[in-house]
Amino acid sequence: MSARNTYVRPMSGWYRRNPHFLAYMLRELTAVFLAGYAGVLLAGVIALTRGPDAYAAFREFLSSPLSVGLHVLIFIAALYNAYTWFKVSPKAMPPIVLAGRRIPDRVIVGSQLVACVLVFVAMLLLAGMS
């Protein structure tokens, strides 16, 4: 076959071409916020090991408007990431068959959402108990 003079289109800015790709990039962006939160937790642990004064300073930082603002963003990122994670989870697991019938994807996704809410309530109760 003779060499064809084909045209290859550029990929630059591909994620702006389709809302689905934008949603995907937002999902990937949540990682930056969740990584930041892992850093906050680690800082809290380090502060704890350094004594009451260091821990008080850490809690003071948590109460600053900057921290609260950032945590609003982290919280939104965590919720969006959780939603996308549950939504695609049926794709990464083998079909679950119960009594000869395949469990529908929405049941798998739904039960994980319920579990997430239960964990949320349980942890809030644990933390809030005084």
């Binding site: 939160y37 809290g44 948590l62 945590h71 919280f75 965590a78 919720l79 579990a115």
Partner: peptide, 27 residues
Amino acid sequence: VASLVAPALVFITGLALPLGLLGPDAL
């Protein structure tokens, strides 16, 4: 962890605690 535990943890340490939604002894 990120989908099941992180939303609750972020809310507790980053929002509920500083906004005073938890008990006085919390954390």
